[in-house]
């Protein structure tokens, strides 16, 4: 038996927003530790890794490990039926071929339940080794979203160049060229408005705008985003999810032919 209760179901709505542009379907692996998901997009260029710890939920029970293959368009239809302040309970029996979503209004006067069919998916997991990244950039997530959106008007690729002075995002194309430089913030009132850079070695890498823009669909989950880069390895874009865990996106760099 699997049962997870979440007092504010808006978190799960935001998680779904953050993955549904990259993935059509995904397997949610449920265990005693929590809910995990790892899936590559269709083109195998990017990967989504989601971790929601069991202790973040208001109630969590998972007697046996359970892998739920879910069509994300179907789940989106169901989650649209929930109010942001509804209390959500997800329930599935062991070896079930369906999962139930129950929404209760705060005053408990309205209770809805939606049963969704699970699907069988081929599980493809990538082994991602622990990596000491040369540059770790932390910045406001809204600023990162804005930069990706602005630069995508100029070209298909963004060059991210990090030195200890700051980080530069550049794009070029038919219209011309665009450069956005961010320096480390000297002092800020709010931690979430800070730009910080931990640099061992300077790094310059090129990435597809389209994927970066998809990653920024997670902006609502966290006020800060962390970019981890090393030469010749995928970029990691991480958003913390409050008391639950995180969503990480991995993106293979573009390389010169």
């Amino acid at each position: 038996m699997f049962e997870a209760r979440l007092v504010q179901c808006s978190m799960l709505k935001k998680v779904l927003e953050a993955i549904k542009e990259l993935l059509n379907e995904a397997t949610f692996d449920c265990s005693d530790a929590g809910i995990q998901l790892q899936a590559m997009d269709n083109s195998h260029v990017s990967l989504v890794s989601l971790n929601l710890r069991s202790d973040g939920f208001d109630k969590y029970r998972c007697d046996r490990n359970l892998s739920m293959g879910i069509n994300l368009a179907s789940m989106t239809k169901i989650m649209k039926c929930a109010g942001n302040d509804d209390v959500l309970t997800i329930k599935a029996q062991d070896n079930a071929d369906n999962v139930m979503f129950m929404f209760e209004s705060q005053n408990q006067e309205k209770v809805s339940d939606y049963d969704m069919k699970l699907i069988n998916l081929d599980q493809e997991h990538l082994g991602i080794p622990e990596t000491d990244y040369s540059c770790i950039i932390k910045m406001p997530s809204g600023e990162f979203a804005r930069i990706c959106r602005d630069l995508s008007q100029f070209g298909e690729s963004v060059v991210i160049s990090c030195t200890k002075e700051g980080v530069k995002f550049s794009a070029a194309g038919d219209v011309g060229a665009a450069n956005i430089k961010l320096a480390q913030t000297a002092n800020v009132d709010k931690e979430e408005e800070a730009v910080t850079i931990e640099m061992q070695e300077p790094v310059t890498l090129t990435f597809a705008c389209r994927y970066l823009n998809s990653f920024t669909k997670a902006t609502a989950l966290s006020p800060q985003v962390q970019l981890s880069m090393s030469a010749d390895v995928p970029l990691v874009v991480e958003y913390k999810i409050g008391d639950f865990g995180h969503i990480r996106y991995y993106l293979a760099p573009k390389i010169e032919e």
């Binding site: 083109s43 995928p234 032919e257």
Partner: peptide, 14 residues
């Protein structure tokens, strides 16, 4: 123009 690499160039299936 640079070409897009595949993630599986860096990580292996487990």
């Amino acid at each position: 123009t640079p070409i897009q690499n595949d993630l599986q160039e860096y990580y292996t299936l487990v």
